[in-house]
Design a protein around this nucleic acid. Structure first.
Lengths: 221, 221
DNA sequence: TCACAATACATAGCATCGCTATGCTTTGAT
DNA sequence: ATCAAAGCATAGCGATGCTATGTATTGTGA
């Protein structure tokens, strides 16, 4: 009685198609616009509204896609016997992901509109928190270290480097600063300096830094 | 013979007017567009083209304005007897500036188009390098510390925090992470831990953190 | 002092942007 | 089988940045 007749169901494939195409256009530096997005796909401009509610919704979904890819990348980092080494590996993976899709990374944070899906970022942080707690349990860090705070600080370091490199001011080589910075941070948290440096450098080497692509900008949001 | 007649000179006041108005609109979250920018100023849309060559030129000029304000803010940090304290004060000033005009800060780095005026950023870095060299000369840092590298790392920390707070993921309180992070970095560079912490916290207190404004987004570039 | 040319400035128009209004088509529950 | 609800396609709207064209202004060389 309340709902007398249901209607045509929307095809999830269309949504994925648009999202992947948008990410692809972002990656190839093509301006992502409503009409250019649907051009050649066979679907009409209205699809963007039925599936995303407009371009803003598409950007939000794209940002979430970015967080999803990041989470996948971080999940691929295998746990080792050394939690500090794992922390460094996570940091390296974070930077590698950011520099492999710099435009998507920009969308994730440069956003001019609010981000409501704070859960995505929180989940990423949680991964760090867990490893930090493991390091604490093994006595690598002081007892008074707050895992969430240390995780946030690690994040700030990673994001600072990633952002400065992705937006231009620093060259790709600057990513190498990540290792000494994390070493300083973890040493400050209580880890023994020499051991910390070895752990971080081991973990850091697990992820390739970046591609030396020549970068020309064009039509970012 | 080569230049037979010169013409009407352009008024620098118009350029400054447009630039200040753009910064003001950015600050009040009004969408900065070609027509809204010149509306009410008496000048026509063409002025944007004669003075900036288009909207892209205006954004570039705005970004340089952002760097100029930052440089002014940093120049206001008085030199004390303690270089590490001065470093922390510079970091705090950097964050304070970023959070006082978050939208301008975004324009400075989020830019979708290349930044050619790397000199502006370099000049900011140079200020840090000088103080770090002073700290080295006073024996606070190891001899093998590269001032430019340490300055870059300090910048990455400041930018990471500023960016994460300015774009939303972290709350304003997160700026407080700056002090412990810089302490860890400088301790890693050779400073004696307890003394470093005192220096950083003293320097950090010299600059107010930020305004607790409720933030709603609207029409960023 | 005068006249000219180069430049600033004002207006109008263009292509494109995101979005909405309007039908038509499809679909699934009754 | 029916029919309402939702997907979908098209056309058009206001607004965007930009360019083309014409006018006004002003510094300079004569």
């Amino acid at each position: 009685m309340y709902c007398e007749a249901m209607a045509r169901t929307r095809d999830p494939a269309v949504r994925r198609l648009l999202l992947e195409r948008a990410a692809q256009m972002l990656r190839t530096r093509q301006p992502v616009t409503l009409r250019t997005l649907v051009a050649g796909t066979g679907v009409s401009t209205m699809a963007v509204y039925t599936y995303f509610g407009g371009m803003d919704g598409l950007w939000k979904a794209l940002r979430q896609e970015g967080f999803t890819r990041l989470a996948t990348r971080l999940a691929a980092v295998k746990r080792s016997a050394d939690p500090v080494r794992d922390l460094a590996a996570l940091g390296a993976a974070y930077l590698a992901n950011a520099l492999e899709n710099p435009d998507l990374y920009r969308v994730m944070f440069d956003a001019g509109f609010d981000l409501e899906d704070t859960g995505a970022a929180d989940e990423t942080l949680h991964r760090l928190v867990q490893v930090i707690e493991r390091a604490k349990a093994e006595g690598r860090f002081h007892d008074e270290v707050d895992p969430l705070e240390l995780a946030t600080q690690s994040w700030a370091i990673g994001h600072g480097l990633a952002s400065l490199v992705a937006t231009g001011p620093l060259p790709h080589q600057a990513l190498a600063h990540g290792a000494p910075m994390l070493t300083a941070l973890f040493t400050g948290a209580g880890d023994e300096p020499a051991r910390c440096r070895r752990s971080v450098e081991h973990g850091w080497g697990r992820a390739a830094p970046a591609r030396p692509t020549s970068h020309d900008r064009k039509g970012a949001p």
